[in-house]
Write a protein that binds this DNA or RNA. Structure first.
Lengths: 181, 181
DNA sequence: TAGCCCATGTAATTGGTTACATGATTGA
DNA sequence: TCAATCATGTAACCAATTACATGGGCTA
């Protein structure tokens, strides 16, 4: 079976909440950068295709003069298409964990390199943790502990679990490595 | 800057330990399926290219008659190329966490669907946990707690940390969701 | 003799990134 | 006036997957 673009679902998912421009979709994607990424080079062509296929409609909401701005709205067909996808089980997706591969092959390099890789990873994780905390403040704080409809909370929570686990692992490895010079 | 194939490094990493055929590399990749995946359609052409570029050499070790079998050996140049890569910091890699996306957009579906997705995810995680445990038995048990050169241990340990974190998160989410019908 | 593992490869297709191009508006 | 943000898009490129094709050897 042929793969199908997942970009379309990322886009429709946002459009399902409210109409948006390609630029706005990209901005919203920034909030879930920990789970999903899309480039403009993928967003604009896909929006065009979705319109052609009747999954979204496009309206010109030109700002003042000249500069065009297109707002996309999801159609019923688009909604159904999204809902169907949401119900589907996640297909096998090839894993490519680059740092993991480097660590696995680290025996072909030096211990110092390994420690430096782990140190760098820790930094990245701490940045991710900060980012996740800022999202937590933005979307969860001062709300109910868990409202079942609050799916952003679930995403943020997952991020916390995973980042903390990676940090713990990272620190354990560093401790062992540095303790044995 | 143009992206560069990571397949070549996955291949060279294995060849750095011992010469192997494309088929054998694929088999070894099976053990680290949790961190890296390669298809035959990528392995064989890459091996050919590596040979052409002097990063590996190819020897025909034909089994008996007819059926050809090619064993690849890493060259000094290949070794250096690998070592250099091992030292490089991990570049930004676009994230595509499909279940995460489905959960984030779950408000456009039903609670039942969300629970079912999480349940399915839990199953997958338990399978991964089992697999990781089997690797632990295969590569770590009856050895020192952590020999600094034992990088397989690090990989397996990371797997454990992450799988457990995901399972914990998954169960917390299910509890809350199921407790509020 | 059927099925599984060993073993190598190619062709078609595409999803996706990167880099480039262009211009308006806003605020320090 | 300079930088950042808003805003849309295309062209070139390629890494990678999927499906297909082929055949030997072993064993239950």
């Amino acid at each position: 079976m042929a793969r199908q673009s997942r970009t379309q679902f990322a886009i429709l998912g946002f459009l399902a909440s409210e109409p948006a421009t390609g630029y706005e979709i990209r901005k919203q994607l920034g909030d879930i950068a920990t789970i999903w990424y899309e480039s403009y080079g993928q967003i604009y062509p896909t929006l065009k295709r979705l319109t052609k296929e009747g999954l979204a409609t496009r309206a010109t909401s030109s700002g003042a003069k000249g500069s065009d701005k297109y707002t996309y709205t999801i159609t019923d067909k688009g909604h159904e298409f999204l809902k169907k996808w949401l119900e589907e089980p996640v297909q096998f997706t090839p894993v490519r964990h680059e740092l993991g591969l480097r660590i696995y092959f680290a025996k072909h390099s030096t211990k110092e390199v390994l420690i430096s890789q782990l140190g760098r990873f820790k930094e990245v994780l701490n940045e991710a943790k900060e980012f996740n905390t800022s999202l937590h403040k933005k979307y969860v704080l001062d709300k109910e502990p868990l409202i079942s409809s609050d799916h952003a909370y679930m995403t943020i929570s997952e991020g916390k679990y995973i980042i903390d686990a990676k940090l713990a692992w990272c620190e354990e490895m560093l401790e062992h490595l540095q303790g044995k010079i």
